[in-house]
Design a binder for these strands. Structure first.
Lengths: 361, 361
DNA sequence: AGCGCATGATAAAACGATTTACCGACTTGT
DNA sequence: ACAAGTCGGTAAATCGTTTTATCATGCGCT
């Protein structure tokens, strides 16, 4: 057995440099060429090599705690191994759930995730553009407020970077991942119906947004199934923030005839509605039942605690990233609906039987 | 004037490739060497070059919408241009503020920010390690729960990656950025004192955490200034979550003698305390005044809305990143206190004059 | 004429990984 | 004995930048 030429382990050599063994170091130490090291560590199936060599390479890599340099790798592979998540409001705990899901999904695939604020994006579009042009990220997940997406999206589409949009369906090359919004809002409405409510209002998120429309549709279907329909004066547009929810709540409460229950198509807005009720002295749930869409810890601590339909936001984020990764690998654009776990009613204290509500005004 | 040799713009050449002009393309098109392009675009002051050439290079770069490839640049410069922000609970809106500040600060310096969950970090420490070893990030900002930081930190310190810790002071090579916690909790306590409260309790966050100790000290100083002191049975440890706050609230309310007011050293815990009061039928603020530390939108929508001391969390994040960047540039480790904007009382409805509180039990 | 010096560049060597193309030494079949 | 095929690798090109060292040219001066 001829021992392969191995560089003698010079005792005087400066082995003290603790920072960053390279593939060359490993190769030298293992007595092989860098090609072998790379191919062994990347498990190249086309590589035929002695088992002894293979283990030796692994051992040396381990001992030197070798980790491939990301920049070099990215340069060669023409792929940064990073994706970017664009989110419009970090303080919204719902987004936090989506981020966590996305994050987990990214890490599982060995990629990292950058986070960017959508406000920043609007204020300095050139930064996102720069990130794309400079190939800092391989793809984009966007979670945008809803309607004014188009300008930004068109720009992205031109940049030909794989993109997935969360929570709204879009035309064009971007993939999309949405929730089963209709099922959720139907569930919410059915809950109110079962409690005996017949006079039901809706506070939509941005009415023009895709997501809000799907949710509204769920309400209408649930009502329709009982031969009821939505009174136009009880359909009020809010938005995705607590403040807009409060305004909408004020307007609803200012109606001559008030509904006995309202389904709010966005949690933040729902919290706002509760605030409006408190200010107006309207007791929830005694005078008005309120139900929101999507659960978050805040719902447990509002006054009163908010009954909601729980939706799989975390999974939404995870799926968005998974789809993105597939698209990056060359897969087709797709648009998915995340149905699992299915929307589920979480009962708290903001809804009650219609019987307990006195005649409106 | 001799025109420099310029590559003729071949009309038949494939100029259709829209993706990624390189420095070579720019050089060819401008009729100069890549060295000139690089140095012109990077504004190398040592470069002597004709003004005409300079403008030509800029023009061509613009026209080809050239953006340097990040991977190549990072490889050459041995710096990724990215930092990593480690946060322990994304759903905590306070952290969101810190993240936004950090984010803004990073972008201002042209770097990008990765976000990592501290839970993930504990579950898979090798991932952070990998990110560091593979030189994916140039530095680390950590916002950790408080006390059990040491193991992770020690590991980081070994990796010799510049690190800044937010919200607690640490030994070792890491920098730190903290708030003026003492001033804030003193302010909170003084508010209660001015309302006439003399029987004041404290619900600490993790008692052993640096931050919690500083906050507790503020309370003691404020009391001390009036010749009062903290009753040991009214000092209860909670943590950084709503759930732990509830437990602590339960324990406080279970005391034989109850204080008439309590300062809670963490907002999440404060929300939890409110929940405990509601469950126990203790009216806030009539039977118990509650004040929290650090403001966030949730405080506006708890029941009752929570009076708090506002603290500059966003600035904390921004400063943390700024310090980190300085350390990356070779600056010394430092530990700062962010005092601006100064802590400020935000009055809501969870505190009231002591007079209105009936005798305890 | 010859020296030095500024001007305006350029060529080439890194940075650290991946991958293609090739190669020498053995086996094996005929 | 020789062509062909396997085994176990290696050398070198490449990705796109940055930066150091070098160089040609012309000009002013002595």
């Amino acid at each position: 057995m001829t021992t392969p030429p191995r560089a003698p382990a010079e005792p005087g050599s400066p082995e003290i440099r603790r920072s960053g063994a390279t593939v060359v170091d490993v190769a030298r130490e293992a007595g092989v060429s860098v090609a072998v090291v790379s191919r062994v560590l990347n498990r190249d199936p086309a590589l035929r090599v002695r088992d002894a060599t293979r283990t030796r390479v692994h051992a040396v890599a381990e001992q030197l705690s070798y980790t491939p340099n990301t920049s070099a790798r990215s340069l060669r592979l023409a792929s940064s191994g990073a994706i970017c998540f664009v989110v419009n409001d970090l303080a919204n705990p719902i987004h936090a759930a989506a981020i966590e899901g996305a994050q987990a999904s990214a890490e599982r695939s060995g990629r990292v995730m950058l986070l960017t604020d959508a406000d920043e994006l609007s204020a300095h579009p050139e930064r996102l553009q720069g990130m794309l042009d400079s190939r800092r990220v391989d793809g984009l997940v966007m979670h945008l407020p809803g309607i004014r997406d188009d300008r930004a999206l068109r720009r992205i589409a031109q940049a030909r970077v794989p993109t997935v949009v969360m929570n709204s369906r879009v035309r064009g090359p971007a993939g999309s991942v949405i929730l089963d919004d209709e099922a959720a809002s139907r569930l919410a409405t059915e809950h109110l119906l079962e409690l005996g409510h017949r006079e039901i209002g809706v506070i939509t998120a941005l009415a023009a947004s895709d997501r809000s429309q799907r949710r509204r549709q769920g309400v209408e279907r649930a009502l329709g199934a009982r031969g009821l329909s939505l009174a136009p004066e009880w359909v009020i547009e809010a938005g995705f923030s607590v403040a807009l929810g409060e305004v909408a709540g004020d307007r609803l409460l200012a109606q001559k005839r008030r509904p006995t229950a309202v389904v709010v198509l966005n949690v933040m807005a729902a919290i706002g509605v509760l605030g409006a009720c408190r200010r107006a002295g309207v007791a929830v749930p005694d005078e008005l039942s309120v139900i929101g869409l999507i659960d978050t810890w805040v719902c447990d601590h509002s006054s009163p605690p908010l009954t909601v339909v729980q939706m799989p936001i975390r999974e939404l984020g995870a799926q968005a990233v998974s789809l993105l990764l597939e698209m990056i690998e060359g897969g087709p654009r797709a648009s998915l609906i995340v149905r699992e776990p299915a929307p589920r009613l979480v009962l708290r204290s903001s809804t009650a039987s219609a019987a307990s509500a006195p005649a409106a005004r």
